Amino acid sequence: MNATNMVQGNLALKLETPAEPTFTVVQGGRSGFQPLTVNPACNQQAAVAPARVALKVPTIVAVAVALTLFFVLAMSVFSARHAAYAESVSSVTYETIRVQPGDSLWSLAEEYPIEGLSTQETSDMIRNVNHLEHGSLAAGAHLKVPARS
């Protein structure tokens, strides 16, 4: 080992720090940089406590109005869809069929569609009308399905 790098005795415990610490902030991108010397004593509070964002009353009112409008619009779309579903279901007449091997609620909903309802909604309706807990069907079982128009 080189003798000049060795520290003996109490000198090993002595910490020498500069009187005023500084660091360098590098600005720029991949193409190059411009070093800036910054005194951390001036920026110490900014680093410790993040700046608080104060929302102004007009901003809060605008957000509240937007959320209210969104809620009202969502509820009107939902209630209109529910009304269309209820109207379609109330006018349905049923016929009883025998389940064939390979039949599913989806295939029956496609085979016996209800005007104004999607295949998923028709499938759900067939499951509800027949009080089925799950979607699997047993061949030979009797089910109520919408009458063909």
Score class of each variant (00 low, 15 high):
Tyr112Arg: 10
Ala109Trp: 00
Pro35Arg: 11
Thr59Lys: 13
Glu115Ala: 14
Gly32His: 10
Leu137Val: 04
Asn43Ala: 08
Val48Leu: 12
Asn10Tyr: 01
Ala138Glu: 10
Asp124Asn: 15
Ser123Pro: 02
Leu108Gln: 03
Tyr85Thr: 04
Gly135Pro: 04
Ala138Gly: 09
Ser149Trp: 08
Ala86His: 07
Phe23Glu: 05
Leu73Lys: 10
Thr59Ser: 13
Val65Ala: 14
Leu67Gln: 12
Glu115Val: 10
Ala19Arg: 14
Leu11Pro: 01
Met1Lys: 11
Ser91Val: 08
Met125Val: 14
Val129Met: 05
Val65Pro: 00
Pro35Gly: 12
Thr37Gly: 12
Ser104Met: 06
Val129Phe: 05
Ala139Arg: 01
Tyr94Pro: 02
Ser123Asn: 04
Pro146Gln: 00
Val38Pro: 00
Val61Cys: 03
Ala41Val: 05
Gln120Glu: 07
Asn39His: 10
Arg127His: 02
Ala84Ser: 12
Pro40Cys: 04
Ala62Cys: 08
Leu105Pro: 00
Ala86Trp: 03
Thr24Phe: 02
Ala64Trp: 06
Met6Ile: 13
Pro113Phe: 00
His142Ile: 02
Val92Leu: 01
His142Asn: 13
Leu13Arg: 15
Gly32Cys: 09
Ile114Val: 15
Glu133Asn: 11
Phe70Thr: 11
Gly32Tyr: 06
Thr17Lys: 15
Met6Tyr: 05
Thr37Glu: 15
Phe23Val: 06
Gly29His: 11
His134Phe: 06
Ile97Tyr: 03
Pro40Gly: 03
Val61Arg: 14
Pro35Lys: 14
Asp103Glu: 08
His142Glu: 11
Asn5Trp: 06
Glu20Trp: 11
Asn128Glu: 08
Thr22Gly: 07
Ala83Lys: 07
Thr122Val: 14
Ser136Pro: 03
Ser149Cys: 04
Leu69Ala: 14
Val77Leu: 12
Ile60Val: 15
Leu55Lys: 12
Ile126Met: 01
Asn130Thr: 04
Ala46Tyr: 00
Pro101Gln: 10
Asn2Val: 13
Ala46Pro: 03
Val99Ala: 03
Arg127Lys: 15
Thr122Trp: 02
Gly28Gln: 10
Ala66Ile: 04
Phe71Gln: 09
Val7Arg: 15
Met125Gln: 12
Ala62His: 10
Asn43Trp: 09
Ala66Thr: 07
Pro18Val: 13
Ala141Arg: 11
Val72Asn: 01
Val26Gly: 10
Ser91Asn: 12
Pro18Tyr: 13
Val25Leu: 12
Tyr112Ala: 00
Asn5Phe: 05
Gln44Tyr: 07
Thr122Pro: 00
His131Tyr: 07
Glu115Asp: 04
Lys14Ala: 07
Val63Glu: 01
Val77Tyr: 10
Glu110Asp: 09
Ala46Met: 08
Glu121Cys: 01
Ile60Asn: 03
Gln27Ala: 11
Glu111Trp: 01
Gly29Met: 09
Ile126Ser: 02
Asn130Gly: 03
Gln34His: 05
Ser118Gly: 12
Ala12His: 13
Pro35Cys: 05
Phe70Arg: 14
Gln44Phe: 07
Pro21Arg: 14
Glu87Pro: 00
Glu121Met: 08
Ala86Arg: 13
Pro58Met: 09
Val89Arg: 03
Val61Asn: 11
Met6Gly: 06
Ile126Asp: 00
